[in-house]
């Protein structure tokens, strides 16, 4: 057994395709971008080597940390909303009527491209013609906020569509995980007189722990490098109030022609994400693997 499963040739054969792909197409660009970060370069003219200057400037850049704060807030919100997604998945995976149909409906926003989602929400939030304020007016709120224009609200206003859009993604994963639990285990618990809530918390949750911890990493990493909706809906504005790390990086590298600095910011983004992920993995690490 041990001999077969530690045969180097087989291991290489199974890991090589994926490893080669990411090495060539992800790591080489990554290293190149880290290298560009060492340059004073507009992306077009001559490169001047300036050592760690860009990285140091990045660490001292208030705007960068401001955007990092927003990214962290998004990561925190995303992580907490996992609990809601998980709850919904529990309900759907228990054998209630119509759960199959509901599950499909829940995933719809995820199927649409971000362009469509962004357009929809921009229209919802429109202060004069939008649905949201029309509704607030109707229930008697006279001066509803101008959602995307108000710097103290805009960030949260933009989180909602993101959390909404990703609901389907996590429900899909949790649902598959819950459906993967052998019926016999649950049956056994039921015979022992466990309530549905007890089964969910004591049996199912521990069994899909590994999956949950993977989704936590996905949610955090995904949030820290999030770009799409924010860029379309506010472009980071007004005046940086909804800027996140990735949109800040994009602005520097693509709009401001500060490619060296933008690359350095991109690299810092990655380092920050790495550190956070490392901590999260340590915290959520499972000592023993559970097998069914």
């Amino acid at each position: 057994m041990n001999k077969v499963m530690s045969n180097k040739l087989f291991i290489a054969f199974y890991i090589a395709p994926a490893l080669l792909m990411i090495t060539i197409l992800i790591f080489i660009p990554l290293i190149l971008s880290g290298y560009y970060g060492l340059m004073d370069w507009d992306g077009i003219g001559a490169k001047t080597f300036i050592g760690l200057e860009n990285y140091i400037a990045g660490i001292q850049d208030k705007l960068f940390w401001n955007s990092a704060l927003h990214s962290f807030l998004l990561a925190i919100f995303s992580t907490f909303s996992l609990a809601i997604y998980l709850l919904v998945s529990f309900i759907l995976a228990s054998k209630i009527k119509g759960s199959d149909f509901l599950r499909k409906i829940y995933l719809i926003p995820m199927l649409l491209s971000s362009v469509a989602i962004a357009q929809l929400w921009v229209k919802m939030y429109n202060p004069s013609n939008g649905m949201l304020n029309a509704f607030l007016n109707m229930i008697g709120i006279d001066n509803p906020p101008t959602w995307l224009a108000n710097p103290s609200i805009v960030l949260y206003a933009i989180f909602i569509p993101i959390l909404w859009q990703y609901a389907g993604f996590y429900i899909l994963i949790y649902y598959a995980a819950l459906k993967n639990i052998p019926e016999s285990l649950i049956e056994a618990a039921r015979i022992d007189g466990a309530t549905p809530a007890q089964i969910a918390l004591r049996i199912k949750l521990p069994l899909i722990k590994e999956v949950v911890s993977v989704t936590i990493v996905l949610a955090i990493v995904g949030s820290l490098k999030y770009f799409d909706l924010i860029y379309v809906m506010t472009a980071g504005g007004p005046n940086g109030a909804s800027e996140v790390m990735a949109s800040y990086m994009y602005k520097l590298a693509f709009s401001s022609y500060n490619f060296g600095y933008g690359s350095a910011i991109g690299f810092l983004l990655l380092v920050i994400t790495l550190i956070v992920t490392f901590i999260i993995r340590k915290v959520t690490a499972t000592k023993e693997r559970i097998e069914y």
Binding site: V122, S128, A149, P238
Partner: peptide, 21 residues
């Protein structure tokens, strides 16, 4: 200026003008 102008795209503002709002 219209309400919430900082959150509106030019295109949205244009349509407010063009729809007589």
């Amino acid at each position: 200026f219209v309400d919430g102008f900082n959150g509106l795209a030019d295109e949205e503002a244009k349509s407010m003008f063009m729809s007589g709002q």
